[in-house]
Amino acid sequence: MGGSRTASSDITAWCSAVGLLSLILLLSVRENNASNDSVRGFQFSEKPCEEIYIVGEGETLHTIGDKCGDPFIVERNPHIHDPDDVFPGLVLRIAPFYFSRKV
C-alpha cells in the first residue's frame, strides 16, 4: 500500500510541476510578444480610428492624420479634390494599420 501512495504523490507532483512550467512559459511568451510589437522606433498600438471616418467640426486632414496615424489620407480618398476643402460630415477612408513613435 505504501508504494501506491508514493506513486500517486509522484504523479500529483509531476502534474503540478508541468502545470506550473506551462503557466510560466505562457506568461513568458505573452510578455515577449508585447515587447516585440515595435519595429525601428515605432510601436504598434490599438487603432485610434475606424477604417471609415466622418470629419467633425473644426477638423483638418492634418489633425485627422495625426489623430488616426495616417499621413496618406488624400491618397486614400480620391474624392478629395482640394485638401483645404474639408467639412463636417465628409466621409474618409483611413488606413487599417496604425503605429506611434516610441516614447
Results as ranks from 00 to 15, higher is better:
30 R>N: 13
74 V>H: 04
69 G>M: 04
27 L>R: 07
90 L>D: 05
66 D>Y: 04
39 V>A: 12
4 S>Y: 02
64 I>D: 02
20 L>W: 07
21 L>Q: 10
77 N>M: 04
66 D>Q: 06
48 P>S: 06
16 S>A: 13
81 H>R: 15
23 L>G: 15
72 F>V: 01
101 R>M: 10
88 P>T: 00
65 G>P: 06
89 G>M: 05
45 S>N: 10
65 G>Q: 04
29 V>C: 03
54 I>G: 02
75 E>H: 12
41 G>F: 01
35 S>H: 09
20 L>S: 15
65 G>A: 14
68 C>W: 03
73 I>D: 11
62 H>Y: 13
43 Q>H: 13
60 T>V: 02
87 F>A: 08
2 G>R: 13
61 L>Q: 09
90 L>F: 04
14 W>H: 14
41 G>D: 04
7 A>N: 10
39 V>P: 10
96 P>N: 09
67 K>T: 10
75 E>K: 15
7 A>K: 14
69 G>E: 02
29 V>T: 08
45 S>T: 11
50 E>T: 08
78 P>A: 02
74 V>C: 01
42 F>I: 03
35 S>N: 11
100 S>W: 00
102 K>W: 03
81 H>S: 15
102 K>N: 08
27 L>Y: 04
94 I>Y: 03
35 S>L: 12
26 L>T: 12
23 L>F: 14
60 T>D: 04
18 V>F: 00
9 S>Y: 01
84 D>F: 08
80 I>S: 04
29 V>S: 02
47 K>I: 00
62 H>L: 09
